[in-house]
Design a protein around this nucleic acid. Structure first.
Length: 429
RNA sequence: GUGGUCGUAGCUCAAUGGUAGAGCCCCAGAUUGUGAUUCUGGUUGUUGCGGGUUCGAGCCCCGUCGAUCACCCCA
């Protein structure tokens, strides 16, 4: 029994899990770059005040916060958007607009772990700063859809839930509800499907609203609502509007978003949202004390729920398998059949690796059978046998089982050439 | 932070309050220059941890840690 375990809510990444993580990273990166986003990174530790400023004091209960050795209040980042706002406002003049930035890295929240929720998770963030148009909202939603498709998750497996905070802002204005109640109201709307109707009605009555009226308004907000017109036209032109479902109940957390809000969610397993985001036009001004008033929108996708969805989605397996196969194993394995030839074999190991061949060998003396088994285990395409016949060496194609003899001098060129040829044997059906 | 369920070998799981087991995995040999199969042998453990009840606890009780589910929250 191991003396030490991972800290609650944290994960080990054993090789197979690490490969899956890297597959997710590479997919996120490649799609973001396809969309013209550039990668940035922010510190994992920030001043606790950075998060208080954005979300208020009660948030510290969900924060991995501590005092450093100089008694500064610092926190592991629970999200990256405040850091992005800090960075972007500090040097926004250095960048042409719109800024299309993405980032991926760990975030930390001190919560009770359960399915789809750990204390450390990895997020992919994509944000567009300096563009207030619906076109950038559409660009972000399109990116989130294409990320899902790139993972092999298909139209029948996921959808975009879309809403717009301004719908509710207008509603509250019409109903003459004071602005200070908007946060409370949005939290009620967020829970309207889960909470007991009587309790919801009581809470709404406290700010002068009725449940029936709110419900009726919610149901009336469909894709023809003017708040979605420009976004709808854009995504329709891309052929992506069919992924979108209007849901006025999507409000996304606190008083952070100002316009479009959306979530990516799965259709078959009832998981937590895979991704979420929206427009937050006032955040940069808030974070810079009014110094930089820059419109912005973005979304974040976590690796945990995504990983669960990938494992439950058959069509996503092909990409994972293909990536894993391309990453693990070696091209060739050197078998040292005669230990007196080890020095010559090591020279060849070095030469082949320098030539770009992925290659392994047994570092300790082993029986030939074991070495061939190791070659097989590492998915090597060729075994190269160094034995008594040196300076001749045998090359065995482990797929076709053909065996040829070459001189040690021509070994590197032979292997490099042979590696370029398609793999013999049965093709995939 | 609150509550339910659960913690036995690296993994999947057995064992009436009475000597801790099986399969898989891993390692070695059969096989001294060729991948499979098979066979043989081997390590598997302070039964999560700490107390308590009992002649005796993997089993019962309390605490604690962890996992999981629900709540809270989900920026």
């Amino acid at each position: 029994m191991a003396t030490f375990r991972t800290v609650k809510g944290f994960r080990d990444f054993f090789p197979e899990e690490c490969a899956l993580r890297n597959y997710i990273f590479e997919t996120w990166r490649s799609v973001a770059r396809r969309y013209g986003f550039v990668e940035y990174e922010a510190p994992v530790v920030e001043s606790t005040d950075l998060y208080r400023k954005k979300s208020g004091d009660e948030i510290t209960s969900q924060l991995f916060c501590f005092l450093d050795k100089a008694d500064r209040e610092v926190s592991l980042r629970p999200e990256v958007t405040p850091s992005l706002a800090r960075m972007a406002t500090a040097r926004q003049r250095d960048f042409k607009k719109p800024m299309k930035w993405f980032q991926l890295g760990s975030c930390f929240r001190y919560e009770e772990p359960q399915e789809g929720r750990t204390r450390e998770f990895i997020q992919f963030n994509a944000d567009i700063l300096g563009d207030a148009s619906a076109g950038s909202d559409a660009e972000l939603i399109a990116l989130s859809i294409d990320v899902m498709l790139a993972f092999g998750i298909k139209a029948e497996d996921f959808a975009i839930r879309l809403s717009n905070r301004q719908i509710w802002t207008q509603y509250l204005e019409e109903k003459k509800v004071p602005a200070e109640h908007s946060g409370t109201f949005l939290q009620i709307v967020d829970k309207i499907e889960r909470a007991k109707p009587e309790e919801t009605a009581t809470k709404l009555a406290a700010i002068g609203l009725s449940l029936d009226d709110v419900r009726a308004f919610m149901n009336a907000a469909d894709e023809n609502h003017p708040a979605f017109a420009a976004l709808r036209a854009d995504l329709t032109a891309r052929g992506l509007w069919s992924y979108v479902r209007i849901d006025a109940g999507i409000v996304r957390g606190l008083a952070y978003y100002t316009g479009t809000v959306f979530e990516v969610f799965d259709l078959k397993h009832g998981l937590r949202a895979v991704a979420g985001g929206g427009r937050y036009d006032k955040l940069c001004a808030l974070m810079s004390d009014g110094g930089v008033d820059m419109p912005a929108a973005g979304f974040a996708m976590g690796d945990v729920v995504l990983g669960i969805l990938l494992s439950k989605t058959p069509s996503a397996q092909f990409g994972i398998t293909e990536y894993l196969n391309s990453q693990c194993g070696v091209d060739a394995y050197i078998v040292i059949a005669d230990e007196t030839q080890r020095a010559h074999a090591l020279a060849a190991v070095q030469a082949l690796r320098c030539a770009g061949v992925r290659l392994d060998y047994s570092m300790a003396a082993q029986k030939v059978g074991k070495q061939f088994q190791a070659a097989e285990n590492q998915k090597a395409r060729f075994a190269i046998v160094f034995g008594a016949e040196y300076p001749e060496v045998q090359i065995k194609n482990l797929v076709s089982r053909e065996q040829t003899v070459v001189s040690a001098d021509s070994l590197v060129s032979t292997i490099v050439e042979a590696s370029k040829r398609p793999i013999a044997g049965p093709l995939l059906a």
